[in-house]
Design a protein around this nucleic acid. Structure first.
Length: 586
RNA sequence: GCCCCGUUAGCUCAGUCGGAUAGAGCGCUGGAUUCCUAAUCCGGAGGUCAUAGGUUCAAAUCCUGUACGGGGCACCA
């Protein structure tokens, strides 16, 4: 509808341009929906925008524009208001047309093709595989999932990827932690390292390891050496010593334990994500970038070589540095440490280069707000490698607080004490978890109220929305019990009977749905869908309380049922984008 | 010190990349049910859009400064 208005305004604009011999073709034409009934359905500010170019008063310009507008059958009338708004009043049956469109498109209603099937990569969660997901990860998980749905809805081809940091020191820490717990489990008395991962989940992994591998990794000698190392676990260096010792002692078995721990954790992470419909289709392991197959150079080596060939690397204090300052970063960054290890940043360069090489048009990273400092260096590296940084987009997710009875729950991971994501999902249901995580703008802090998420009243927006859907279903259920059904043809023929304020409001709202979807996708703001659904449901509940649908007048009844059917479809489609089912009954 | 994000009703938050009288829920307050789910609805009170300037026909929205709150500034991952 807006597009149609823009189209005819464009025609008028061109005519005025020709007449005055000036170029107005690059003027932006915007249409707004009016809140005020007296102002009509839509308004344009075009006259005010070009008044200066024509050096005439906006009001005169508006009159001029209107005189050039082609006549359209769906426009009732056009008003001009101070100081130069052009107000469009649409014929009443124009609103009803949307019901026909919904009836035809069904689940497809709201979709468009503006993405042109371009390939997009959304990388999200990517939590380190050193422990289970906790509530802090949930928000990014749902955000990435819904954003991906949204982008598909507007015509992109989307891959959802999880980057697994299965390389580096943290994996060694995990391995040694598992082994120590395994030794304890097998009956050896020893103190667990203060620097190891303290969580209970490590014990479970160790127990499984013992069950599966029996006594394969048991300590047969050198116990006193180990005990001595465990007595002194005050610094990160002490931990490194322990790890080195473990590697020497276990030899190839170290890697076996490592693989076992990694696999356990990743499978629990995958399970947690699946349990609330977060479905990555790609899992990218950092370690694959370190492989050199058949003597070929690894991806890491390759990206470092490319940077070097482009002259963006230098050595200082035995380390290898990238000149990120040449691309606006605050300081240069180390890619290879003095001890020869690659930094995490080196992996990131290689990983992002890989994303580009896979041919994605848009590369979207969903990151925690605490990572914002990384953008300059990553995009600097991509620029240095000749990639366009515009292709790389980063969305930051602010932290979430969990509230129980109005009080914050501490989410510190210290001492392994945190609420795991799966506990949250079990407590409030997967649907509620999704909805409440996504119900705020991503860059806003979020208070996740557990009681509210569980409550079954209208205070709970998800409940309220689902109830609206269930209520509509219930109306059709009652109809069925009376052995009647919706007569589509009769309904369609009588749509002009839908002329109550509420009925027109609902139809206008339905008409807005595709715009809301586009906007949410364009700005990466899935929360807009939540608010839209809340408002649509509110209109419906109000309508429900004021009017009866199953009335004697068959024409009116079927028209109203047709409206209800469209409303139900849109609620269902909107919830679908959020990854939430629309219940038939509650 | 530098860099991000934020500041809108008592509370929690929306606010269409500048538009007409700034919205919703909660809370407070007054009402509605022999009727399709009252799991709901209707009415009322409540705002100097943190603050000071600037740009504009028009600013909660854009620019600059200030205050306050959160986060980040590793040869960690």
């Amino acid at each position: 509808m807006k597009d149609d208005l823009i189209k005819i305004l464009k025609i008028a604009l061109n005519s005025i341009g020709d007449e005055n011999d000036i170029d107005l073709s690059n003027k932006k034409i915007s249409i707004q929906e009016n809140k005020e009934k007296d102002h009509g359905d839509y308004a344009s500010n075009l006259a005010m925008v070009i008044a200066k170019d024509l050096s005439q008063s906006p009001k005169l310009v508006a009159e001029k524009i209107v005189s050039f507008l082609p006549l359209e059958p769906w426009i009732e009338r056009i008003d001009i208001a101070e100081p130069g708004f052009i107000n469009f009043f649409l014929k009443q049956d124009t609103h009803s047309k949307i019901l026909l469109e919904i009836d035809e498109s069904r689940q497809e209603f709201g979709k468009n093709k503006s993405g042109k099937e371009e390939r997009v990569l959304v990388e999200y969660v990517s939590s380190n595989p050193t422990g289970p997901l906790h509530v802090g990860h949930g928000r990014g998980a749902v955000f990435g999932s819904v954003l991906s749905n949204l982008l598909r809805t507007v015509g992109y081809e989307v891959d959802e990827e999880y980057y697994v940091n299965d390389e580096g020191r943290q994996m060694n820490t995990l391995t040694i932690s598992t082994w120590l717990r395994y030794l304890q489990e097998s009956g050896l008395k020893l103190e667990f390292s203060k620097k190891g991962y303290q969580g209970e989940y490590v014990k479970k992994i160790a127990a499984n390891l013992l069950k599966e591998k029996k006594e394969k990794y048991i300590l047969r000698e050198n116990e006193s050496e180990l005990q001595e190392l465990l007595q002194a676990q005050e610094t990160e260096e002490d931990l490194d010593h322990l790890i080195e010792w473990g590697k020497l002692f276990l030899e190839g078995n170290f890697d076996e334990i490592r693989q076992f721990s990694l696999a356990s954790i990743m499978s629990s992470i995958k399970e947690d994500l699946r349990s609330f419909s977060v479905n990555h289709n790609l899992w990218f392991n950092e370690s694959t970038m370190y492989l050199n197959k058949e003597g070929a150079e690894s991806s890491i080596d390759k990206s470092i070589r490319l940077l070097n060939e482009a002259n963006f690397l230098y050595e200082k204090d035995d380390a290898l540095w990238f000149k990120s300052t040449e691309f606006g970063d605050d300081k240069d960054r180390v890619v290879k440490r003095a001890n020869g290890d690659n930094t995490y940043f080196a992996s990131d360069i290689s990983y992002h280069l890989n994303k580009y090489e896979r041919g994605y048009k848009r590369i979207i990273n969903v990151w925690g707000a605490d990572h914002h400092g990384y953008i300059p260096r990553v995009s600097a590296a991509m620029e240095a490698l000749g990639k366009t940084k515009e292709q790389l987009e980063v969305v930051f997710i602010q932290f979430a607080n969990l509230l129980r009875k109005g009080k914050k729950i501490s989410m510190s991971t210290r001492g392994g004490e945190f609420i795991s994501l799966i506990e949250l999902i079990k407590e409030v249901s997967p649907e509620a978890a999704r909805f409440f995580y996504i119900n705020r703008k991503a860059d806003q802090h979020l208070d996740f109220d557990l009681e509210l998420a569980k409550s079954q009243t209208k205070d709970n927006p998800l409940y309220y929305i689902q109830y609206a859907h269930a209520r509509i279903c219930s109306v059709f259920e009652t109809l069925k019990k009376e052995e009647k059904q919706l007569n589509r043809v009769l309904g369609i023929e009588n749509l002009e009977l839908l002329n109550l304020d509420k009925e027109i409001e609902i139809q206008k709202m339905l008409l807005n749905y595709p715009d809301v979807v586009s906007r949410a996708a364009k700005h990466s703001e899935p929360h807009l869908i939540c608010y839209y659904l809340r408002n649509l449901s509110s209109l419906f509940h109000s309508y429900y309380n004021n009017e009866k649908f199953l009335v004697e007048d068959k024409a009116l009844m079927n028209a109203r049922l047709f409206l209800l059917k469209g409303t139900k479809q849109v609620i269902s489609n909107g919830l679908g984008i959020l990854g939430i089912d629309a219940p038939e009954s509650m």
